[in-house]
Computed example of a mutant assay.
Amino acid sequence: MDELKQEEDAIRKEITALPDAKRKEYYRLEDKRIKDPDTYAVLNYFFLAGLHHFYLGNELKGILNAMAMLIGIILFGMFGWVLILIVLIIELPQLFRSQTIVQAHNNKVMRETLNEVKFGRSQ
Rank of each mutant, 00 (worst) to 15 (best):
A41R: 13
T39P: 11
A17V: 09
N115T: 04
I73T: 05
S98K: 08
V102D: 01
E112T: 00
T39D: 10
F119E: 01
V117M: 02
V109N: 14
H105Q: 10
E112A: 10
P19T: 06
H105S: 05
L56D: 03
G72T: 06
N115W: 01
L51Q: 09
E25P: 15
L4M: 08
L92G: 05
V42R: 14
L75P: 04
K22T: 03
G57I: 12
M67G: 13
L92I: 11
A21W: 13
M67W: 10
R28H: 14
I90W: 15
Q99P: 03
L114N: 06
M1H: 14
T100L: 02
T100S: 05
E8W: 09
D36W: 08
M69L: 12
F79D: 02
L56A: 00
E14C: 04
N115R: 04
R23E: 09
L18F: 10
R111A: 12
M67K: 07
T113R: 09
N115C: 04
K35W: 14
L85Y: 05
A10V: 13
I90V: 15
P19V: 01
N107F: 08
L85N: 04
H53P: 14
P37T: 01
E14L: 07
E25H: 11
M78V: 07
Y26W: 10
M110P: 06
A49D: 06
T113P: 13
R12M: 09
I86E: 09
R28F: 12
K5W: 14
I84A: 03
Q103Y: 13
L64W: 13
D9V: 05
P37Y: 14
L60S: 15
